[in-house]
Design a binder for these strands. Structure first.
Lengths: 244, 244
DNA sequence: CGTTATCTTGACGTACATCAAATGTCGTGG
DNA sequence: CCACGACATTTGATGTACGTCAAGATAACG
């Protein structure tokens, strides 16, 4: 279920320059900053790259940093002592991580694809943050949005059937992938069935069977396991919302 | 599963005076304000009282207000079209509600016991908030804490057994009730078995059976259904954390 | 005290988990 | 190019934790 990992390498010290060509900028908290503020923020940031399977942060470790993902997909994992795993989310470009008041990380962060991110020392960011009221407002907006998403996920985990969970997941992935591009009817899933299962509170077998049934019902089609075509978005949405 | 409700009555216009005697003050966001700011905030607030079963806000309604609960216990409910219900939380004194960027409420709020609260117009609060950076910082802290709690609940709903869920709930209730008082070994549960079931993603029967089994195992004892004595906190905590 | 809602307990059903095997899928090296 | 092994995914057979249905037991309330 888990992949081994070695340490990541800092590829360049944080400088305003990388920000200028950062294509996550307009999707992240940085979009609330003007150029002068970007410089101040970049001064305390470091850019890192992680290979698939590498651990970016470990649940329980001292929460020394915030992260801002600039490319790739990661997974946020919580574990029980016997190995049961719950995935909390699949952050991608633009997601800000470390939104926790606590002194230790409440989840592990692991790279699914190659992940690039911008890393901030918590102490430094806190010191700088008081100078940027817009940044604080932006973080509040982000946290509130995360909260709404988390509550929706609680409904899913507590009350939806396997079929409804998978439909919800596909529609949600489609929607977020559309946010960065034109409307489409195709979802790319960089995560494994095991990741999806642990995100939806199910097993890989149930995920696979649910995929097969959606396919048999002509609501989706699967070429390879990572590419899903949405054939009937309306019906799939209805299922996701428990309307059947 | 649901109780009828009529409309609540405003019992007094918001004034600095009620804040002075508000015993939720030190537990709420208001504790980050000095006296002058309290006056400004109180100017835009209204105090309300709700009877058990009354609806305080309805999922999907235009989110015109924020609430700050000053007394009593409420439940936050999300519903699926066929009536399946997920309870997101049981806010009590000091909890701030309406933490959502969206234009409509993402959940309904219903009074379990008699509930008193302080109500703020969203538009007015937003206008006032920019003058109180400490308030914004406080709201961010609150939102981040809620997020950590929500993530913990996702682990519970996705991966814990019925027994573990109930143990988690009891320990969590004990802990929060202790936060306002001395350490104790006794939990008061103002909510029904149905509420607990919908909070833990189970049925009332499973809740009842899990209570009975914890009782048979001498980890708790029940006088009436609403009073639980914690007999072995250590073992109960271990179960809650999935260590058995 | 009835009356009614809530809670508990028992008997049985089912959606999903578990166990097991077949079938891709993909990289590697002959 | 094909054979091979290591994995991920799918599919099938069976098990089980929890849900559903039903009946009592308690508690709340006029």
């Amino acid at each position: 279920m888990y992949m081994e990992n070695s340490r990541a390498i800092v590829i360049e010290p944080g400088l305003p320059d990388p920000c200028a060509k950062c294509d996550a900028r307009q999707h992240s908290m940085c979009n609330s900053l003007d150029e002068r503020d970007m410089f101040r923020l970049a001064e305390i940031a470091g850019v890192q790259k992680f290979e698939p399977g590498q651990t970016i942060a470990e649940e329980g470790d001292s929460a020394a940093h915030f992260f801002n993902i600039t490319a790739g997909t990661a997974r946020l994992c919580k574990l029980l002592p016997d190995g049961r795993r719950q995935i909390i989310g699949f952050p991608t470009r633009g997601h800000f991580l470390g939104l926790a008041v606590t002194s230790t990380y409440g989840f592990s962060v692991e790279a699914i694809t190659e992940v690039r991110l911008c890393k901030f020392s918590r102490a430094k960011l806190n010191r700088v943050i008081s100078d940027f009221p817009e940044l604080e407002a932006k973080l509040l907006q982000t946290a509130m949005h995360e909260l709404v998403v988390a509550q929706e996920q609680m409904l899913l985990l507590g009350r939806k059937t396997a079929r409804e969970r998978l439909a919800s997941f596909l529609i949600s992935e489609l929607t977020t992938q559309e946010a960065c591009a034109a409307p489409k009817n195709h979802v790319h899933l960089p995560m494994t069935r095991s990741d999806i299962a642990d995100y939806l509170g199910l097993t890989i077998e149930t995920i696979s069977r649910s995929f097969s049934r959606l396919k048999a019902d002509k609501l989706i089609s699967l070429d390879n396991a990572t590419e899903v075509a949405i054939l009937d978005r309306h019906k799939l949405t209805a299922i996701a919302n428990g309307e059947t």
